[in-house]
Design a protein around this nucleic acid. Structure first.
Length: 264
DNA sequence: GCTATTGTTTCTGG
DNA sequence: ACCAGAAACAATAG
């Protein structure tokens, strides 16, 4: 589920706990979402600390607690965040429960592709300083995009738009949406895009990222009816522009839907 | 049963 | 050293 806008939506689900103390921590300690960190240390350190702030960058989330304690969350394929009433008892897939006086902050993940990392220290952990530039930022400009495309010149553009080092926060549905809007066929090698196509790719990447954040992250509202996302999962999806049947194929290792009539 | 799944990491071959 | 592609990870929904 989670790409840029959904990640931001889930991050906000814990905002009602900001500034409040964590009175108890319950973790499913043996689950692989904790790979690379020690969940027992995490539980011990966080207990009694206050939840100070959180940020999202692409699909990564970063939560800061008092006492120099930090959590990084990646939602993977099926990660979710929500709140429950104080004293909530974790169910099967609720791997992290941070109990506060008035509520419980819950992270759940059925498929376990997600990841929860813990860091204790005065400064931000190295893993928070990695990753590509945010799509709305000045660093994500035509020059950056051009060099990224040239670096991956032989890969199909669909695969390149999924690379987080260049297209931070873009996932499968946003990639198809962007290529459809830019009228670029997903299997074209990135290095073969003309200048005008690159300009379109840049423009539509920024548009889809900005609009998805604006529309989806506050309340998980649906994008407009004329977006490709409403068609791409259907068995017989059609191009929102002119109703041609969409084609589907595995490109870049992922199911890809596109309109052969308008994407060249 | 079978298929599919909005994501990364790791390995292999070039 | 870098890149591209496939497999692996795991659980559920239809």
């Amino acid at each position: 589920m989670p790409e840029l806008a959904e990640v931001e939506f889930f991050r906000r689900q814990w905002d009602c706990g900001l500034g409040k103390q964590i009175v108890a921590v319950q973790l499913h300690v043996r689950k692989r979402i904790f790979r690379g960190s020690d969940p027992r240390v995490m539980a011990r350190r966080l207990t009694g600390q206050r939840f100070l702030r959180s940020h999202a960058r692409g699909k990564q989330m970063f939560l800061e607690f008092s006492g120099g304690n930090w959590i990084g969350i990646h939602l993977g394929m099926s990660g979710r965040m929500r709140t429950e009433a104080a004293g909530f008892r974790a169910e099967k897939h609720d791997h992290v429960v941070l109990q506060q006086a008035r509520r419980a902050l819950v992270f759940s993940d059925a498929r376990l592709f997600g990841r929860v990392r813990f860091h204790h220290g005065k400064t931000e952990p190295a893993w928070w300083r990695t990753g590509g530039p945010e799509i709305g930022s000045e660093q994500f400009d035509r020059k950056f995009l051009d060099s990224f495309l040239d670096r991956h010149a032989r890969a199909p553009i669909k695969a390149v738009v999924l690379l987080q080092a260049g297209f931070s926060g873009i996932g499968n549905w946003m990639a198809d949406e962007i290529l459809w809007r830019a009228k670029i066929a997903p299997s074209i090698p990135a290095g073969r895009l003309f200048s005008a196509q690159r300009a379109g790719l840049f423009r539509e990447t920024r548009f889809v990222a900005r609009e998805s954040l604006r529309i989806i992250s506050p309340n998980f509202d649906d994008p407009p009816r004329n977006w490709l996302i409403h068609q791409k999962w259907k068995r017989a999806g059609i191009c929102p522009r002119h109703g041609s049947p969409l084609r589907k194929e595995i490109i870049g290792g992922r199911t890809t839907a596109w309109c052969a009539r308008c994407q060249k």
